[in-house]
Amino acid sequence: MTEFKTSQEKEIHKKLAIDLFNYTWDLIEKNNRSEADDENMVNAAHASRFHWGLVGTLLNFARGEWQISRVYSLLGRAEPALNHANKSLDLCLNNNLGAFDLGFAYEALARAYAVKGDKQKRDENISLAKQAAQNVQEDGDKAWLLKNVDTVATLSLPKWE
């Protein structure tokens, strides 16, 4: 973690990380995104991850990589989606970040493989995501993970309720 001259600097980076993550999420859910929105979505996701890299935890890193992968999958860019999904998965596996985030890392891989057109690897990762979901204790979290996994084959996105 980076050393800051003041605690205020750390708080600024944390606020930026959170705000940029949420801004990216808003763009992910936006109907009829423009080309400028798509570019902002990519840049905001990377910027959020950058700021988390300065002040966050391994969990923040994994979720940031997951979000970047989601963005690239939405844009039909399989290779960067796979790259960031694999980073999220590595963080989850190497640091025991829990079944919820592990399931979402597999969901990101499945979605990226769906974009790539590799149905076998898509389905393998869907299966791994569903296996991880069985170990999620919180019913709402399990349902949200499975709702996301269920949209991979159609490359659609569930609505947050």
Results as ranks from 00 to 15, higher is better:
residue 1 M to R: 06
residue 1 M to D: 06
residue 1 M to Q: 05
residue 1 M to E: 07
residue 2 T to D: 05
residue 2 T to E: 08
residue 4 F to Y: 03
residue 5 K to H: 01
residue 7 S to I: 03
residue 7 S to Q: 04
residue 7 S to K: 01
residue 10 K to A: 05
residue 13 H to R: 08
residue 14 K to N: 05
residue 14 K to L: 10
residue 15 K to P: 03
residue 18 I to V: 13
residue 19 D to N: 15
residue 20 L to S: 14
residue 21 F to E: 10
residue 22 N to E: 15
residue 24 T to A: 14
residue 25 W to F: 09
residue 25 W to I: 15
residue 25 W to K: 15
residue 29 E to S: 09
residue 29 E to P: 06
residue 41 M to D: 02
residue 42 V to F: 05
residue 44 A to T: 09
residue 48 S to V: 11
residue 51 H to T: 06
residue 51 H to M: 08
residue 52 W to K: 12
residue 52 W to L: 11
residue 53 G to V: 10
residue 54 L to W: 12
residue 55 V to W: 13
residue 60 N to F: 13
residue 61 F to Y: 14
residue 62 A to C: 14
residue 64 G to C: 10
residue 71 V to K: 06
residue 71 V to T: 07
residue 71 V to M: 03
residue 72 Y to R: 13
residue 77 R to G: 00
residue 78 A to G: 02
residue 80 P to K: 14
residue 81 A to G: 04
residue 82 L to E: 01
residue 82 L to K: 09
residue 84 H to M: 14
residue 85 A to W: 01
residue 87 K to A: 15
residue 87 K to G: 13
residue 91 L to Y: 11
residue 92 C to N: 14
residue 92 C to W: 12
residue 92 C to L: 14
residue 93 L to Q: 15
residue 95 N to C: 00
residue 95 N to Y: 00
residue 96 N to W: 02
residue 98 G to V: 13
residue 100 F to V: 09
residue 102 L to C: 15
residue 105 A to C: 14
residue 107 E to A: 10
residue 108 A to P: 07
residue 110 A to R: 06
residue 110 A to C: 05
residue 111 R to P: 00
residue 112 A to F: 00
residue 112 A to T: 04
residue 113 Y to G: 01
residue 113 Y to L: 02
residue 118 D to L: 01
residue 119 K to V: 07
residue 120 Q to L: 08
residue 121 K to Q: 00
residue 123 D to N: 08
residue 124 E to C: 03
residue 127 S to E: 05
residue 127 S to V: 01
residue 129 A to H: 03
residue 131 Q to P: 07
residue 133 A to W: 03
residue 135 N to G: 04
residue 135 N to D: 07
residue 137 Q to T: 15
residue 140 G to M: 13
residue 140 G to C: 08
residue 141 D to L: 15
residue 142 K to I: 08
residue 144 W to C: 06
residue 146 L to E: 06
residue 147 K to E: 02
residue 148 N to E: 06
residue 151 T to M: 05
residue 151 T to P: 01
residue 157 L to K: 04
residue 157 L to C: 01
residue 157 L to R: 05
residue 159 K to E: 07
residue 159 K to S: 10
residue 160 W to V: 12
residue 160 W to T: 09
residue 161 E to L: 08
